[in-house]
Nucleic acid binder design. Structure first.
Lengths: 304, 304
DNA sequence: TTGTACGCGTTATCAT
DNA sequence: ATGATAACGCGTACAA
């Protein structure tokens, strides 16, 4: 049998409404009754029912997160950032995967709305007009809602600085993280001293056998953690930070009704094979020493 | 203004209860009224309220998923598998991160229970006694609940077969996926032809400079997708499958009250640098050819 | 086959 | 400062 507020009220000898007020921290309540109520709550082991509270108050402390594709390696980091913020604020999030079809996305969103979520975070999803809750979009841009995205221009800048005049070849595959950065890259090619390969997503078949020139350097787009074995440079996807920011912005939109925060762009970091952060000292190109030997094996050694 | 069942009932000229029955697909309802109701539903754009439904029916079609650490690279794959199953069955899931402290885990679980989740999936979390909902544990073993885990013995078998007599060195670091496999590994060492390095989790500082012998081979524990650049062998963590299984088992526990499914062990796959699945033809060791050249660059070439 | 009426557990709006 | 009571939106015995 479940303990309800009515039980607590009876045990404390007060009214249901009073119990509710005490629990919600209403200011105008006497010290005496407050203690009585809390004692009863503890004694009976009462747990408030979030569903009933939601039905009555229209506040569910719940947001919906709709992923186009859940299975990407940065999902966890994103959700971790999200939860870091939501946890502090006493919000929960319900996670859905909707694929790339708009019809499924619509379905997922409507489902969440029927759960009375207070807000929505959309990752690589088309925004729907119907939902009258605050929306923050991540990844694909949705005009009309606040957007959190990666600063591709900054990424391109960093890569160009690293290339320091070398030709840059961008190899984008399935699940690429920095889609669109290639268009910002190819402009100013000097083609000296070889090339810099930027590898983003699953390598395509035709790239697997791509011949390389001497003095090559490689950049992987992804996470430092996972790429450490390779001995490559890493252009890190700021997933955790995106989660934090998306949550913060959404909560602002929920609490402060009406305000529509600005779009936000996050700058990804570029790490050397040694794990050092690469900070271009100027905006333009500069000479940067070619990668030294990595401290960790890059692959099976077959020589000798 | 929100459209409720009462509005639909009025528009269709029937009773609220009738609308409810039509929506729930009650068999004993006349064709005529059913069509009337559906017409009204469509015309008014009525959306059922999941919160009210939950309060009334005690069924929320909602489960809670508690992660010890969300930020691991396989979180996304796991959730994807989970959602694949839950989506079909019309269930939603709410995701929480609880860290490693039991107090926080308890807090997260109680919060979910107060939301009236129909079941709980715990990843690397201690199970609580209080929750009287079905529980499936993943990762760390919880006696008293159904557990989904990786078959470490199968993993060890595969690695030993691959080693084919070579010494196996297990380098486990932060975020290791196959914790405990090393104890199943070190037994039968022949130490011929060099060593096989198994790298699991973030490389520790002391391992980064570990000297290697010729004829080495490397196995990374993680995901094929992310490890493709390295040219290493990959012992793939079956995260997606774990999600699918955890969901299936939990739903069984929810639907068929009382049944407690067996614990389940999932066999991880071992892939060659070329992306081929490695299937040891016998249980014991056998000679296996050393890795051929990978089709994708393993790291910056600094020679020549 | 359909309507009536109450319950679910809480918050909000009146009173007092 | 507190009590009584009506919402909140839906499911469901029970009645018809």
């Amino acid at each position: 049998m479940k303990i309800t507020m009515a039980d607590v009220a009876a045990a404390a000898g007060v009214n249901k409404a009073t119990v509710s007020r005490v629990l919600r921290g209403d200011a105008r309540i006497s010290q005496a009754t407050s203690e009585k109520v809390w004692a009863a709550v503890k004694r009976l082991g009462y747990r408030p029912d979030a569903v009933a509270r939601g039905l009555s108050s229209r506040i569910n402390d719940l947001i919906g997160v709709v992923f186009g594709d859940l299975a990407s390696p940065w999902t966890g980091a994103f959700l971790s950032g999200l939860e870091r913020v939501l946890g502090r604020l006493g919000l929960d999030c319900i996670v859905k995967e909707a694929g790339s079809e708009v019809s499924r996305q619509t379905h997922a969103i409507q489902r969440l709305v029927s759960r009375r979520v207070d807000g929505l975070i959309l990752l690589d999803c088309k925004k729907q007009n119907g939902a009258d809750v605050p929306v923050v979009s991540v990844g694909s841009y949705n005009p009309g809602s606040t957007n959190v995205s990666v600063d591709l221009e900054a990424a391109a800048q960093a890569l160009k600085a690293l290339a320091a005049g070398r030709e840059i070849i961008y190899l984008g595959g399935e699940g690429a993280l920095f889609t669109g950065v290639d268009e910002l890259l190819g402009v100013e090619v000097k083609k000296t001293r070889g090339t810099l390969h930027v590898m983003d997503g699953m390598p395509r078949e035709e790239n697997k056998t791509s011949s390389r020139e001497p003095c090559d350097d490689y950049v992987i787009c992804g996470f430092r953690k996972e790429a450490l074995y390779c001995g490559f440079w890493v252009l890190e996807y700021p997933a955790f930070e995106m989660g934090v920011l998306a949550a913060r912005i959404l909560v602002n939109g929920i609490r402060g009704k009406g305000v529509r925060p600005q779009d936000v762009f996050l700058v990804p970091s570029l790490f050397s094979p040694e794990g050092d952060l690469f900070i271009p000292s100027s905006c333009g190109w500069k000479e940067y020493p070619s990668t030294g030997p990595a401290r960790f094996p890059r692959g099976p050694r077959r020589d000798r």
